[in-house]
Amino acid sequence: MTNLYDKPPCCAADALRQVKTISVNGIPTGIAMMEKVFSEVNALGISDEARLKETLLEKVKVYNYVPRAAAPAYAEALLREYREYRPPGA
C-alpha cells in the first residue's frame, strides 16, 4: 500500500496537506511531515520519555526549522501530540 508520505508532494496543495498545526508555547505552529515522523518513531518502539522527545525533535528537524531556543518547547508539544497519535490500522 502506498503511503501519502512515500514520495515528495506533487504540488503546493499536496504539500500543504502534509502540514499539521500544533500549539508550541501557545502559538499555532505548522509542522511539515508530522504524521510521517510519528509513524517512523512509532515503529521504533521507544518507551523512554526523554529519548522519545529527543527522537521526535530530531526527526521533525529534517523537514522543519526549529529555533534552538524553542527546541524544548517544540519537544514538549511534539510529545503531547504524539501521545494522541494513532497509527493507521490501530
Score class of each variant (00 low, 15 high):
residue 87 P to L: 02
residue 55 T to R: 05
residue 67 P to W: 03
residue 33 M to L: 07
residue 43 A to D: 03
residue 67 P to T: 01
residue 82 Y to R: 07
residue 10 C to Q: 08
residue 65 Y to T: 11
residue 66 V to F: 06
residue 43 A to R: 14
residue 80 R to F: 04
residue 47 S to E: 13
residue 21 T to Q: 11
residue 66 V to W: 04
residue 87 P to W: 00
residue 79 L to W: 02
residue 81 E to F: 02
residue 64 N to I: 02
residue 60 V to I: 14
residue 25 N to S: 15
residue 54 E to N: 06
residue 47 S to L: 06
residue 28 P to V: 09
residue 83 R to V: 07
residue 61 K to R: 07
residue 11 C to N: 06
residue 41 V to M: 07
residue 2 T to W: 01
residue 70 A to Y: 02
residue 25 N to L: 13
residue 52 L to R: 08
residue 1 M to Q: 04
residue 14 D to I: 01
residue 75 A to I: 11
residue 19 V to T: 08
residue 60 V to N: 05
residue 59 K to E: 10
residue 82 Y to T: 11
residue 58 E to L: 14
residue 53 K to P: 00
residue 26 G to L: 11
residue 57 L to C: 15
residue 11 C to H: 01
residue 6 D to R: 07
residue 86 R to W: 00
residue 2 T to Y: 02
residue 63 Y to T: 08
residue 38 F to A: 13
residue 78 L to R: 04
residue 88 P to F: 06
residue 64 N to G: 14
residue 71 A to T: 04
residue 57 L to W: 07
residue 47 S to N: 12
residue 47 S to R: 12
residue 85 Y to N: 06
residue 43 A to L: 15
residue 20 K to W: 06
residue 90 A to C: 12
residue 19 V to A: 06
residue 51 R to W: 05
residue 33 M to I: 10
residue 76 E to M: 02
residue 34 M to Y: 08
residue 69 A to P: 00
residue 17 R to D: 14
residue 62 V to R: 10
residue 71 A to Y: 00
residue 5 Y to G: 08
residue 9 P to S: 12
residue 89 G to W: 00
residue 1 M to F: 08
residue 27 I to Q: 02
residue 26 G to T: 05
residue 49 E to P: 10
residue 34 M to A: 15
residue 12 A to K: 03
residue 32 A to G: 12
residue 72 P to C: 04
residue 10 C to M: 11
